[in-house]
Amino acid sequence: MSGTASRGELWRALGAICDQAAPHPLLPAALGLPPADPAAHTELFVLQLVPYASAYLSADGMLGGEPADRVAGLWRVLGMVPPAEPDHLASLLGLYGGLVDAGADPALGEAAGAVLVRARASVLWEHLLPWAPAYLCRVAELGGAAHQRWAALLWRALQAEVTAVAAPPEPPPAVREAPPALGAEPDPRRVLAGVLAPGRSGVILTRADLARGAATLGLGLRLGERRYALQALLDQDPVATIGWLAAEAGRFAARLARSGRARPAPGRFWVARARATQARLLALAVAAGAGADAALPGPGRAG
C-alpha cells in the first residue's frame, strides 16, 4: 500500500462527483474531468442509476434494508456515527478515503494499523466491489462524456486497490448471502418482478432501457415507475417483451465480461446471475408458447 499517502483525497473527490450536481468547478478540473451539466447529473444519478449499494444488492431492488444496515454496522464497528445514507457511493468512497488517510499516518501503532487494514479491505471487497463494477459498467454506457470519464477513472482507481488490498478469505456477505436468483416460479409476474432487482437478476434495467425497449419493439411506453412501465410492455406483447429482456440480460453479461469488470471475484457473480436470468427468461418465453425466436440474440451474442 505504498504511495497512497494522499490517495484519500482522490476517493473523496470521486465521491463528490456522483453526489453533487454542481460541484466546485475546481473539483472536476483537478480530476481531469470535463464539467458536467447539472441536468445530466440529475438524469444519471437521480433518474437512471441511483448510486446506492442497496438498490443493487437487495432482494427487491429497493433502497435501504439489509445492505444499508451492513454498511452502517461497519461504521459503528469503527466507532463512528453512520451517515444518513451509509450505502450511497459517495459515503462509501468518503469512508474509504478516510481509512486510506488514517492508514497513512506514520504515528499509527501496529494494532491500530491492522484494524485499518481490515476495515479498508472490508469497505473495498464487501461494500464496493460487490456492486460498483456492474454499476460503473452501466454508467459508462448511459452517462454523458464527463460521467463516462468519471466512471472510467473510478474503475481504474478500484482496480489499483484490488491489486494493493488483499481480499478477505471468504466471499463478501453480499455474494455469500445474496438473494436467490430468478427461480422456476410458474408465475411469470414474479419472475418479472425479480428482473428489476439487480441483486437477483444480475441485470441493471433503467427507465431509459425500458424506453429503448419499447421503441425497439414498437410498443407504447407508459410513463411511470419501472415496474409499471414494464408491465405495460408485457400487457401489449408479452413474448416480444420477455425476449427483449432475455436479450438485455445476455447483452449485459457479455458487456460486463468484456469490460474486465468481472475479473474481481464479485464481478463474476454478476455475469453468472445475468446469464442465468437470460436462460430463465428464454425458458419462460418458450413456456408461454412463443418459442425462442431465432432473431433474438442468444447468450454471449448480444452486444
Binding site: R7, E9, L10, R12, A30, G32
Partner: peptide
Amino acid sequence: LDALAGRV
C-alpha cells in the same frame, strides 16, 4: 492516481 490525488 497519486498525482491526481495530489492535484485534488
